[in-house]
Computed example of a mutant assay.
Amino acid sequence: MAQIDHTVHVALGERAYDILIGPDLLAEAGAILADKFPGRRFGIVTDENVARAQLPRLTAGLDKAGLHYETVVLPAGEATKSYAMLERVVEGLLAARLERGDLVIALGGGVIGDLAGFAASVTRRGMDFVQMPTSLLAQVDSSVGGKTGINSPHGKNLVGAFHQPKLVLADLSALDTLDRRQFAAGYAEVVKYGLIDDPEFFEWLDANLGEIFEGGPARGEAVARCCAHKARVVIEDEKETGVRALLNLGHTFGHALEKDTGYGDRLLHGEGVSIGMVLAHRFSTELGLAPGQDAGRVVAHLKRAGLPTTLADIPGTLGSTQDLMAAIAQDKKVQRGALTFILTKGVGQAFIEKGVEPGRVAAFLDAVR
């Protein structure tokens, strides 16, 4: 019997779904899927690392429930979010003779969730899919809300679709297999929710950081609170025409840094977001919008979590300010060539600022290099 510690409902009318949070849910997934989706077959998409660590638990449960499944295993890493791997997944699903009424299972972190969800959205003109996030980043952010996609040579997440899952199973036990760097990278997305508009949550995180990293009850509560926050935003603005853009706090800078470092282990996504959130706070201070001490509080908390907070923390040599600005100019929030940033008036007071002068951004980056 599955132990469900938290259930978060994403109320999107006929596309509504639940996020189930608890321990050992991968082992119980077969029973859950058989109950919720009787008669369906499944195409599991995962990567080599997750296949070793988590796939046997999932398939044992599927076998026990008598479910039919096929598996596509991909290389691990951000570079997998590519046209080539999209083709590999789609062709794998088609070769398995999965039909439109069957389901794709995205088993992995944010890369697999984004890629598998996008593949589901285009295979046979649209298949349903289930998110089974195995990283902290995916459990609190990327598995919820229906954003799917791949990267382009021009930038991150520039090719994709909004395609909501039918169910999210967040197995807290899967987080025990993450190394500290990967867990910390995911934690950057946890902190983001407090910095956007929930200063009380930021204070709670500051008080419970140790228990979250050690795997106590606060870990599950943090995942649930983040999912509930994102669900509220998605319900209000599913396709990011307004307030959902706030969830990109730190991402404009972060995505540019990821592109510059080649989407690899040199800078993990969450590490880019961590530096990006600090830059967003410091840029806001530079513009006279936020008190400098709030940027200091953000830096202190992220450092406690073991996250990078400055450009100097990135190994190797970065490209020029011009290179970074070229990446920023490809950000999805750009409108008619004008830059849009998520800025802040302090901890928990983020807002959307359109028409940011590129020269101010370039001068700021020159100053912090």
Rank of each mutant, 00 (worst) to 15 (best):
R52E: 15
P291T: 13
L33S: 05
A79E: 15
K81E: 13
D141T: 08
A305P: 03
F213S: 10
G264F: 04
A34E: 10
S274D: 07
A363P: 02
P153N: 07
G149S: 13
L287K: 09
Y83G: 09
K230H: 01
I314T: 09
T317V: 12
I105R: 00
V298N: 03
A245L: 13
G113E: 05
A245T: 06
E271S: 13
W204Y: 14
F129P: 02
L107E: 09
R219L: 12
G194E: 10
G270L: 08
P23C: 15
G319F: 04
E240R: 04
F283L: 15
L103E: 04
L169G: 03
D366N: 15
G264N: 12
A79C: 08
Q182G: 10
Q164E: 01
K81C: 13
D313V: 08
D313W: 02
H6W: 07
L249N: 02
T7F: 09
R100F: 00
T317N: 07
K333V: 05
P199F: 02
L20V: 12
G108L: 14
V104C: 03
E271A: 08
A280P: 01
D171T: 13
H251E: 13
Q293T: 15
G108D: 11
G296R: 11
A224T: 03
L175T: 07
P38L: 04
R232H: 08
I112D: 09
G306M: 02
T71R: 04
Q330G: 00
A207L: 15
L115C: 10
V72M: 13
A51R: 08
F202S: 04
R41M: 10
L158G: 12
A27Y: 02
E28M: 10
R336P: 00
L178A: 10
L267N: 04
G13D: 12
H68K: 05
T317M: 05
A290M: 07
V168D: 03
K166Q: 15
Q3L: 15
P358H: 07
L268R: 11
P291Y: 06
I32L: 14
T309A: 05
M127C: 02
D114I: 14
T241F: 13
R360Y: 03
F183M: 14
T344Y: 04
A305I: 03
Q3R: 10
G145H: 01
A350V: 04
A16Q: 10
V10F: 07
F42C: 06
G276S: 09
D323R: 08
L25A: 01
L172Q: 09
D102F: 05
A224L: 07
E286T: 14
L93Y: 11
A11L: 04
Q330I: 00
A295K: 00
D5E: 15
N157D: 11
M325I: 13
